[in-house]
Write a protein that binds this DNA or RNA. Sequence first.
DNA 1: CGACCGATTGAAGGTCGTCAAACTACGTGG
DNA 2: CCACGTAGTTTGACGACCTTCAATCGGTCG
Lengths: 233, 233
Amino acid sequence: MKIEVIDEVWRELSKCEMCGIRDLVLFADLNEDDFKLIHQPIVDLQLKPFQTLYRSDDSPDFVYTIRSGLVKLVNYSSDGHYRIVRLLGKGDLVGIEVLAGLPYAHCAEALEPLTVCRIPVSEVQRINRDTPRLHQQMIARWQKISCDADYWITELSTGQARQRVIRLLLHLSAISDRSDFFLPSREDMGAMLGITTETASRMISALRNEGVLHVLEKNRASAELEQMRALLI
Amino acid sequence: MKIEVIDEVWRELSKCEMCGIRDLVLFADLNEDDFKLIHQPIVDLQLKPFQTLYRSDDSPDFVYTIRSGLVKLVNYSSDGHYRIVRLLGKGDLVGIEVLAGLPYAHCAEALEPLTVCRIPVSEVQRINRDTPRLHQQMIARWQKISCDADYWITELSTGQARQRVIRLLLHLSAISDRSDFFLPSREDMGAMLGITTETASRMISALRNEGVLHVLEKNRASAELEQMRALLI
DNA sequence: CGACCGATTGAAGGTCGTCAAACTACGTGG
DNA sequence: CCACGTAGTTTGACGACCTTCAATCGGTCG
């Protein structure tokens, strides 16, 4: 529940045209001329786990495209509890609500080592005004949020604790680009699933004992996916 | 859990320029010239409670602007259960995901007597291409979905059943344009909150006994809002 | 009137939260 | 280097809360 201040490891001005995940990013459809519309610098950042991209009361000046790593969007409530409302991964756009003229709606924190492009809001708005080639990508991003939110409600906030944990693990496995996947802290699992830390821990223990989940190094695990899916039925 | 087929009560071609809720709707910012871009008819529909606007496997040809009434977005799962993931009211755009080229993501059903404008997708896309004045409204609508989803997760899918019920009632009261408000069936309340029908019923009974909730006619209620808010603390 | 559906209520049992303690990993400082 | 403190995880016991199953009640519609 601690919030560390962002530590900006500036790497280099991004060469969007040569981006390694060019086909995934917000600017995927832009052409050479469009890039001339960018006046302020887009920089690469690297964050370590637990560092924050932004907090909800930060000045809403940037959006971020995730190049690699995992981000959680967190709503803190006054009583010290928190609820994680979404996970974002490669290609996702973090802080999109500021493009609608609103403050940041959440606190965005890195879970895994994170690399992002930091894009000034003013640039996105300028490009959005001047070329229609950004619209399609913007719509796709908004749409994904809606779809993710549905998943969060129907799969991760519904049913028994054991089922929720299994669905979360399968989800984490699905969005991982490796064979192993990110295993959140039990507290974070609780905040994602609307259950307590202890319950999350118990469910993980049970799955380990049943031999369907293997905890590797810190915060990583692998799973017998087929067997695990079978447990849902 | 029954699904009735849409019963299209055609009223008249909509005169968007003279719309009573013009400042709320998707086309709020369009000018006279923009409306000339509309070739296919936009029609008004009236639906009774329990009728559906569309189902998830319907051909995604229309979006709907709510003029009055309440709509639930429902995800049915194969085992017969269902989860309500959002409520939409006056000015909201129903089925927005089809504008991103996707099938309907939910089943949309009327809760209260409903009046909507049925807008062909092709028209929205044409206007969106030809005038930037639609963009702002589109973004605002996508943004609202994201915001609503956060609320659904943090307030309605978190904590004890009693708190969830109270928060739902306060929410229903807040989005009502009258002093009384829509009171869902206990089954629907369960599907909104991730609890059982019986638990929902028990909570409603308790609140009635405590004198903070007054059930009026069928599916309507009023509440001592201040006292009810105090119960959350 | 009888059938049916939704709401309500009761009883019993299971799940999960709460509180507490033990355990582990890790980093710091003696 | 080891002792110790800290933070996170695990485990246990207990009780509260919620689900489940069942019965009843009330209203509506044929």
